[in-house]
């Protein structure tokens, strides 16, 4: 497995030309994944720093447009992290999110971006190790796929390994 988290990313960036690193957005539900990410932090668990977390009230609040807009802007991958099925604070927000992400995945496949870049996962607030594992998985998947074809040339500095 490729180790992606450098202890001082900013320092290394300053020294050598920047290599392509997957840019990933994680929409995290307030009631589970966001708390799990927080817990992972408190427990000093390491996970790749390619992920930018967006705090969401519920995965059911994520519109298809939010996901598409991020991909259009050149994001390489996305994680939508909601509560365990049956455990949604708003009853079925996570079930709706799953249907929406399934639909967007089809669209991403159809237009040539690749549906694997979008992943929906379910976990609880206590599942910090699972959160870390899911983040590692999406980073690895996206790293294997390479940069998004929607990245503009200036965003895509290099497709090589860091």
């Amino acid at each position: 497995m490729t180790q992606t988290n450098s202890p001082h990313p900013r320092e290394s960036e300053a020294r050598e030309p920047k290599a392509w690193e997957p840019e990933i957005i994680a929409f995290c539900c307030n009631y589970c994944a966001y708390a799990a990410a927080d817990l992972a932090g408190s427990k000093r668990m390491q996970y790749p720093n390619n992920v930018r977390i967006i705090h969401t009230p519920c995965t059911g609040k994520i519109e298809m447009e939010h996901i598409l807009a991020a991909f259009e802007k050149g994001i390489d991958g996305m994680l939508v992290a909601g509560c365990l099925e049956g455990g949604c604070h708003f009853l079925e927000g996570n079930l709706r999110a799953r249907k929406r992400t399934d639909r967007i995945r089809e669209t991403l496949d159809e237009i040539g971006v690749g549906g694997e870049r979008l992943k929906m996962v379910n976990l609880s607030a206590a599942m910090a190790p699972t959160f870390v594992q899911r983040v590692q998985e999406i980073v690895e998947t996206v790293r294997a796929l390479g940069p998004s074809p929607l990245k503009s040339p200036t965003q895509k500095v290099s497709a090589g390994k860091p």
Binding site: E72, I111, V113
Partner: peptide, 17 residues
């Protein structure tokens, strides 16, 4: 409005690719 917005994102991305 919403469906047009989704179709717009998808079509724009397809053309950019």
């Amino acid at each position: 409005e919403r469906e047009v917005s989704i179709a717009s994102y998808a079509t724009r991305m397809a053309r950019k690719i």
